[in-house]
Amino acid sequence: MKRLLFSFQGRLNRAPYWYVHLVIFLVEVAFLAALMIPAVLANDAGMLANSAVAANIVGALLFLPLFWISLAVTVKRCHDRDKSGWFIFIVLVPVIGAIWFLIEIGLLPGTRAPNRFGPDPLED
Rank of each mutant, 00 (worst) to 15 (best):
M1N: 07
M1A: 10
K2Q: 12
R3F: 06
L4G: 02
L4P: 03
L5S: 04
L5G: 01
S7F: 02
Q9L: 05
Q9K: 15
Q9M: 07
R11C: 12
N13T: 11
N13M: 01
A15L: 15
A15R: 15
Y19I: 13
V20C: 04
V23H: 05
I24S: 09
F25T: 11
L26K: 06
L26F: 13
V27I: 15
V27R: 09
V29C: 04
V29F: 13
V29E: 01
A33M: 12
A34Y: 14
A34L: 14
L35M: 13
P38Y: 08
V40T: 13
N43T: 14
D44M: 07
A45F: 06
A45E: 13
L48G: 08
A49V: 11
S51I: 08
S51Q: 13
S51A: 15
V53A: 12
V53P: 00
V53M: 13
A54M: 14
A55R: 01
V58R: 06
V58L: 15
V58S: 06
G59V: 08
G59D: 06
G59C: 08
G59T: 07
A60M: 11
A60H: 00
L61Q: 05
L62T: 00
L64P: 00
L64K: 00
P65G: 02
S70T: 05
L71G: 02
A72S: 11
V73E: 01
V73F: 04
V73H: 03
K76L: 02
K76D: 00
H79N: 03
D80W: 09
D82P: 05
S84G: 05
S84W: 01
S84R: 05
W86G: 05
I88E: 03
F89C: 11
V91S: 12
V91E: 06
P94H: 12
P94E: 11
I96E: 06
I96K: 07
G97V: 09
G97R: 10
I99V: 14
W100I: 06
F101V: 01
F101Y: 15
L102C: 04
I103Q: 02
I105P: 01
G106A: 09
L108N: 04
P109C: 10
G110K: 09
T111V: 15
T111P: 05
R112V: 07
P114W: 01
P114L: 01
R116W: 00
G118Y: 08
G118F: 03
D120W: 05
P121Q: 02
L122Q: 15
L122W: 10
E123T: 14
